[in-house]
């Protein structure tokens, strides 16, 4: 289990998007209060268009909330920073850089020496199972491999919190299962505080220590919280797994 130091604290967040004219206002999030403790794997579940990506982007500092604040280790978040590593839904790799070049990018920006960052990057390329592909370019990789690079890159930068925004949404079902297993394995090898956004309840039950669901319509509000105490590694067909999945599905208006 996790220890109880609070890492991320969201206080009463709301977000209203304004159309350019300023007349139409779209409330996306409303009164979201949420905290994540150290090394916890939190999964936020909700259907499409429920504001979950916006919530993650606010925590990342890529959006500013209309009201409310986000704290990381007690300090207010005012913008993006290397203490929060993000894995995007779209494969966000530098097409002109190799796997190695992509993974070490954050470290290079941070000013680490070449030898050091090679070492760190190699470690995480191995951790995500891409050894031998260091010199490959993104267009030579499959979708699953691209997201592995994204995860390795986020890990390599050693952020305090990992933010994953539907990272496997573009993958086929088989690859998605495999990547869920891999994510759980990587997380068990190198514990991190993780906030993972998905629209799949099954994926949430497989990965999470704790699941929060968002309501299925705008503005997004927190609906329920579920603590998942199943032993790891989990099996999709275990009785408890299926019961948990069933309970959440019943209580959530998700279209699956």
């Amino acid at each position: 289990m996790t220890d109880q130091t609070t890492k991320i604290e969201c206080q009463n967040l709301s977000k209203i998007f304004k159309q350019r004219s300023g007349k139409v206002q779209i409330p996306v999030l409303e009164s979201i209060s949420l905290s994540v403790v150290e090394n916890e794997f939190l999964v936020i579940v909700g259907p499409g268009q429920c504001g979950k990506t916006t919530l993650l982007r606010i925590i990342a500092g890529l959006e500013t909330p209309t009201t409310g604040k986000v704290f990381l280790d007690g300090k207010e978040v005012t913008g993006p920073g290397p203490d929060r590593g993000m894995v995007f839904q779209k494969y966000t790799l530098f097409p002109w850089k190799t796997v190695m070049g992509n993974v070490e990018m954050g470290l290079k920006i941070g000013g680490m020496s070449k030898r050091q960052r090679r070492e760190v990057a190699s470690h995480y390329i191995n951790l995500v199972g891409l050894q031998g592909f260091e010199k490959a370019y993104p267009h030579q990789l499959s979708g699953g491999m691209k997201q592995r690079v994204g995860i390795a890159r986020a890990y390599a930068n050693n952020p305090k919190v990992l933010l994953l925004d539907e990272p496997f949404g573009q993958l086929d079902a088989q690859t998605r299962y495999l990547m869920e297993q891999e994510t759980a394995r990587i997380w068990s090898v190198e514990k991190k505080t993780v906030i993972f956004v998905t629209n799949s309840i099954e994926e949430a039950v497989y990965l999470a220590d704790r699941i929060v669901t968002l309501e299925g319509k705008l503005p997004g509000r927190l609906k329920s919280t579920y603590v998942v105490n199943l032993p790891r590694p989990r099996e999709h067909i275990d009785k408890e797994f299926l019961e948990m999945r069933h309970t959440i599905t019943k209580e959530t208006e998700l279209l699956l």
């Binding site: 993006p80 966000t92 920006i109």
Partner: peptide, 17 residues
């Protein structure tokens, strides 16, 4: 690609970088 730019921002990249 704007997502590449956002990603660089999360690594603390400066405008010049």
């Amino acid at each position: 690609n704007p997502t590449l730019i956002q990603m660089a921002r999360t690594y603390g990249a400066s405008d010049w970088q």
